[in-house]
Write a protein that binds this DNA or RNA. Structure first.
Lengths: 209, 209
DNA sequence: ATTATCTATAGATCTATAGATAATGC
DNA sequence: ATTATCTATAGATCTATAGATAATGC
């Protein structure tokens, strides 16, 4: 159920698959800043088409409805977050610091993609059920990375032993505390730099008190 | 900057202040389930008027635009959350358990008002700037209650000593972990009851590890 | 007379498509 | 011939208001 597969589920009459991929990337790139600025409902399909560089008629050759665009946007954002956290995980070694390193990288992605993540929180509800489910699955997949790291460290004794439920919940907490930086940014940035934030929250999560 | 004051800032031609208060309560009560079900943008002003039991013309005697309705709804929801947490605080004694009791009550409010809180996350962006600010201030006011409790317990030695920034951030974490139950409910309810959730998270927040 | 409410609609969108046109490849 | 793109617009809204009507209180 990867990125490319989901996108391919959107039907089109256009035969050239490369062209479809290229145009859809244009559509996503055009839509992201519009959705961030105005929100999904106040962005018109014409604006998306114009920003993407083609006509409204052409837009509808590559998507079947406006919601398709939102889905492609959400999927692309999650793909980028997943990629960044996956990379961080690959780079890291096996000890207790592995967790801190992955958390750090994840929080930095949240910082970098603040507007994007906030937009997903706000607009997921506007997706048709079928795609809302997929977006939520993506969210769980990202949390799953943290589950794996925590379970490994807990099993190897680098972290206090935790049962499955505690591990699962700690992983969700990491995910959500990263998102917190995006949806409370207007307040938090007045008091904390992203580095301070990461430091405090890492201590909080790892339980050094 | 209390509940009643903010609402009163919305202008109206109607002279009878009691009537205004009553009708606006009707509007809020009518709008909440509509916004929860369809979202703000897909709810029409006519639907709100009909559900409230009067005509579209009358609706516009009590609000100046659709966004006014959203603001009144958000304000009413925050008032209820604030009330519940404030009550819990008043009931509680002064020791370390005070914090656990307040957290518990807060999480139970989040559970009870799950749909409402989720709606605020999704629709705050649709508010005009002036009112978005007020809604965010309400959010900070609720977090402020936790700041007070934490600061008191930290000062009295019932909790490990924390500097102001650590206290502030812990308070935000409490707020957001309550909200997490609302926006990850679709996943969390599969694995945790609200009581289990409260128990795990309280341990996490208080740092028994 | 004053206040509150209703009906009817102006005016302004916006999505999605049909049908015409241009570009591409055999 | 086939594939991709564009223009023009049908059709369906929806918000907010003007002007008419009903209810209230002196």
């Amino acid at each position: 159920m990867n990125h490319a597969m989901s996108i391919k589920e959107i039907p089109t009459q256009i035969k050239n698959a490369d062209l479809v991929a290229r145009r859809r990337r244009q559509i996503v790139d055009a839509a992201v800043p519009l959705f961030i600025e105005k929100g999904f409902h106040k962005t018109t399909t014409r604006q998306i088409a114009r920003a993407a560089g083609f006509s409204i008629g052409s837009l509808y050759e590559y998507v079947s409805c406006k919601e398709d665009v939102l889905y492609m946007v959400c999927d692309a954002i999650h793909a980028e977050v997943k990629q960044a956290v996956g990379d961080a995980l690959a780079r890291t070694d096996r000890g207790r610091d592995a967790l801190a390193a992955v958390i750090r990288e994840y929080f930095l992605v949240c910082h970098r993609m603040s507007d994007h993540i906030l937009m997903i929180y706000q607009e997921t509800q506007s997706l048709p059920l079928q795609w809302r489910k997929k977006v939520l699955e993506n969210e769980i997949a990202i949390t799953g990375i943290f589950v794996d790291v925590l379970a490994r460290l807990s099993a190897s004794g680098h972290l206090p032993r935790m049962d499955d439920k505690a591990v699962e919940l700690a992983a969700h907490n990491i995910s959500v505390l990263g998102h917190m930086w995006t949806f409370r940014r207007w307040f938090l940035t007045r008091h904390y730099s992203i580095d301070e934030y990461i430091e405090h929250q890492t201590r909080f999560i790892l339980g050094y008190k």
